[in-house]
């Protein structure tokens, strides 16, 4: 039997094209295969690295699939009660104004049980950054109807499809919060393909910069997939985000005050 040693392999000049961000922990996540939480986490960790703020970050994790989000970042973190992440983040930021406070919430957490807390944190212009994962379903409890579930979408608690006569219409949180005077930056992005993931990262960096400059409340809503509860393959689920969710939840910057626009331009020129 022939064995190969390293010397037998031709020497190649190798370039690192991919590595784990310093802000991301090496711990394997508990997320389902094809779930986009992992992408959202990586974007956030890369943004912390690029802005050099890892040691200043305090992450507020929600109740839901991302309940253990704090385990996946090399930063201080805590666990909020269901829907209360913006209130907890307020208590943290008000007592630690020099830290970078990021709340991370899903659609049931942010738009249903925590609707009051997100609305008032935004209305007060809390200097926090909210990452809002919208996958149109309650994930952890097994795929029930969320406030962002599309009309006609079947879930385990709307088995014949969401009916507007019974449960009203999906909530568009980015549009809603962008109406508030104290919001500095509100954007909706999507995680369904590489191009959009890059846009999502840009939005996260802009949102964090807005906080670092003390410009007000910032939120990035990320359209995300849930293959497990949608009953789809990961690939089909990403396609479903593109074809079904984006028409209901159009992408774009819903609120960008002039000072934030200047920050975003700085980045383009830089």
């Amino acid at each position: 039997m022939m064995t190969l040693s390293m010397e037998d392999i031709p020497h190649l000049e190798m370039e690192t094209v991919y590595s784990r961000p310093e802000s991301l922990s090496s711990r394997p996540t508990h997320y389902c295969p094809g779930c986009t939480h992992g992408i959202a986490h990586r974007i956030l960790a890369e943004a912390f690295d690029e802005l050099g703020i890892r040691e200043r970050v305090i992450l507020v994790a929600p109740v839901g699939c991302s309940v253990f989000a704090y385990d996946y970042f090399e930063a201080d973190g805590c666990e909020a009660a269901h829907g209360r992440a913006p209130a907890m983040a307020t208590g943290i930021k008000r007592t630690r104004p020099d830290n970078i406070v990021v709340s991370y919430q899903g659609d049931g957490d942010l738009a249903s049980i925590g609707a009051a807390e997100i609305l008032h944190a935004a209305a007060r212009g809390e200097h926090i950054t909210s990452i809002f994962i919208n996958n149109a379903v309650y994930g952890m409890t097994g795929g029930q109807m969320a406030p962002t579930t599309l009309l006609g979408q079947r879930t385990t608690s709307s088995p014949t499809g969401r009916d507007a006569n019974m449960t009203g219409f999906p909530l568009r949180m980015s549009e809603l919060l962008s109406q508030l005077d104290a919001t500095a930056y509100i954007a909706r992005v999507s995680l369904h393909d590489v191009k959009h993931i890059r846009q999502a990262k840009k939005a996260v960096i802009t949102a964090l910069k807005a906080q670092m400059q003390g410009l007000g409340f910032s939120m990035v809503e990320m359209l995300s997939s849930c293959p497990t509860n949608w009953g789809m393959t990961p690939k089909d689920a990403l396609k479903w985000v593109e074809t079904n969710m984006i028409p209901q939840y159009p992408l774009g910057d819903y609120k960008m005050i002039d000072e934030v626009r200047a920050l975003a331009l700085e980045r383009k020129q830089g």
Binding site: V60, A80, R84, A87, M88, T90, G91, A116, E117
Partner: peptide, 10 residues
């Protein structure tokens, strides 16, 4: 509800 969760954060 928010007040006690702000206390929790602080």
């Amino acid at each position: 509800v928010a007040a006690i969760n702000m206390v929790y954060g602080a």
